[in-house]
């Protein structure tokens, strides 16, 4: 029993160091996407230190970053892509748009907040949030993810 406990603890600890990230653009103005790409790609903010890896497929993802205010046009696609992400997963809303709608709040084409449709776990407000803020949000998401494993 104790050995089994030890193995499950260790494997959870190891697994928590490999969160793969997937980005969904829910009608964003691309500002937050640029900051996400900055976080991923430039050496100054290297998320690979945390074991993160931006992946091209939702099937590989553990942490989903959603940007944009969820426009009516893109809602169905976002929900479908989100369903493709295997459990356990953590959702991070990047920027004020998915959290509340931001500047587009109450627009006829905007369905924000995102949390009406998708269980969001971490909010990273900002318009757009700076890369360090996104890293901070990812770090909090990893903490939540560790508990879900």
């Amino acid at each position: 029993m104790s050995l089994k406990q030890f193995i499950s603890d260790q494997s959870r600890r190891m697994a928590a160091r490999s969160p793969w990230i997937y980005r969904i653009n829910a009608g964003s103005c691309n500002g937050c996407d640029v900051e996400c790409a900055t976080t991923a790609l430039i050496p100054r903010y290297d998320v690979e230190r945390l074991g993160c890896q931006y992946c091209g497929s939702p099937r590989h993802a553990d942490i989903v970053l959603v940007t944009g205010p969820l426009t009516a046009r893109v809602k169905d696609s976002v929900l479908r892509v989100f369903d493709e992400v295997p459990d356990p997963k953590v959702t991070v809303a990047v920027g004020v748009c998915p959290i509340s709608g931001g500047i587009f709040r109450d627009g006829y084409a905007v369905l924000a907040p995102l949390s009406k449709y998708i269980p969001v776990d971490v909010n990273v407000p900002g318009c757009a949030p700076r890369p360090q803020a996104i890293i901070e949000g990812i770090a909090q998401a990893i903490e939540i993810w560790r508990q879900r494993l």
């Binding site: 959290i99 949390s115 969001v120 776990d121 971490v122 909010n123 990273v124 407000p125 900002g126 949030p129 700076r130 360090q132 803020a133 996104i134 901070e136 949000g137 909090q140 939540i144």
Partner: peptide, 13 residues
Amino acid sequence: WHMAHPVKDEFGM
């Protein structure tokens, strides 16, 4: 800019 928060703190923001 330390404003990232878990959703349970959303209404405290």
